[in-house]
Amino acid sequence: MFNLYWADERGLPAGDRGASYGDGLFETVRMHGDRGVLLSRHLDRMVRDAGRLGIPIALTDLRKACTAAIDRYLERFGKADAEGGWVLKLMLTRGEGGRGYQPSVGARPNLMVSAGPMPVLPASSGVIADFSRVPLTVNPLLAGIKSLNRLEQVMAAREINGELYEVIMADSAGSLVEGTRTNLLLKAPDGWVTPPLKSLAVAGIMRQWVLERLRARGESVFERSVSIADSMGSHCQGLFLLNSVVGVVPVRRLAGQDLPVDDGVATIFNPLEMLE
C-alpha cells in the first residue's frame, strides 16, 4: 500500500525521494467525465514500471486511488466542456528514507494525485516543430519508463517558443528518438515507421495503441531508426506526434520545411472510443 496525497491539500514530505532524486514515475491520463482514455493501460504501465524500479504497488490499490480521484475532481473539472474533458495525474515515488542515494529497505511509497483542465488541442491541420539542440541519452536499464527524471526534456522544452509546438530530440548517433512530450510516427513508402522501443525515454501509451491499430488494419509497421533525412526527405509522406492527452498530431512544418499532412492515422483516433 502507499501513502495517498492530494495536490490541492498539501505537498509531499520534505524527505520524499521523488523530490530529492527523481526516484519515481508518473502517469497523465485524459479523462472524459468519470472515465479515462486507455486508463487500464496507464495503470498497468505504472505498476509494471514501478516493479522495474523496485517500488511495490498493487494494481487494486491504484484503481481505488483513481476512483477516489474521480469522486474528488469530477465536479470541479469534469464539467469543463460538453465532453467533460480533464486531465488526471498520478505521481508515484519510492517514499521517504535512506541516506543519500541508497533507499531504505521497506520504504512505503507515496502517491501524489492531481487534476486539471484539458489543454488546448492542436489544430487538425498540423503543427510546427523543429529539431532540438539537446541530445537525448537513454539508459538501457530505464528505457521506456516514464520516470520523474526528465531534465533533458526540460532543457529541450526551453527551446519551444512562438509558433513551435514541439522540438524533436535525437540520440548521440543523430537518430531521432522522440519529442519532449511526444513519440514519433513516420509515414514512409514501405509503411509506418517509429523508433525502436529500446531507444525511447518514454514508451508512450498512445504510441503502442496506434501501432496495434495500424497492424490490425493490415498495414506495415516497422520499429527502426529514423534519421533527419527520413523525416524531411522526398520519401516522407507524413510525420506524427503521439501523446496520450492530445492524441495523434500531424506535423505540417519541420525546421522550416513544409511536410505532407496525411490523415491516415487521424481517422483511427477517437478518444470517446477508448474510454474505460
Rank of each mutant, 00 (worst) to 15 (best):
L59T: 08
T60V: 13
D61V: 08
R63W: 12
A65F: 04
C66A: 10
A68F: 09
A68N: 04
A68E: 14
A69S: 03
A69D: 06
A69Q: 08
E75T: 05
R76E: 14
R76M: 12
R76G: 04
R76P: 04
G78L: 02
A82H: 10
E83C: 08
G84L: 10
G85D: 07
G85H: 01
V87K: 02
L90V: 01
L90E: 08
L92I: 07
T93I: 12
R94V: 13
R94W: 05
G97L: 05
G100H: 11
Q102V: 15
A107Y: 08
A107F: 12
S114F: 02
G116T: 14
M118A: 12
V120S: 14
P122A: 02
S125D: 07
S125P: 04
A129I: 06
A129P: 06
D130Q: 13
D130T: 12
F131L: 14
S132C: 10
V134C: 08
L136F: 09
V138R: 10
V138A: 06
P140W: 09
A143S: 15
G144F: 04
R150H: 03
R150T: 12
E152V: 06
E152T: 11
V154Y: 10
M155F: 13
A156Y: 07
N161L: 04
N161C: 11
E163T: 11
L164H: 05
E166W: 03
E166Q: 02
V167F: 04
D171S: 00
S172Q: 07
S172G: 01
A173K: 06
L176N: 00
G179Q: 01
G179Y: 03
T180I: 10
R181M: 14
N183I: 04
L185D: 00
L186H: 03
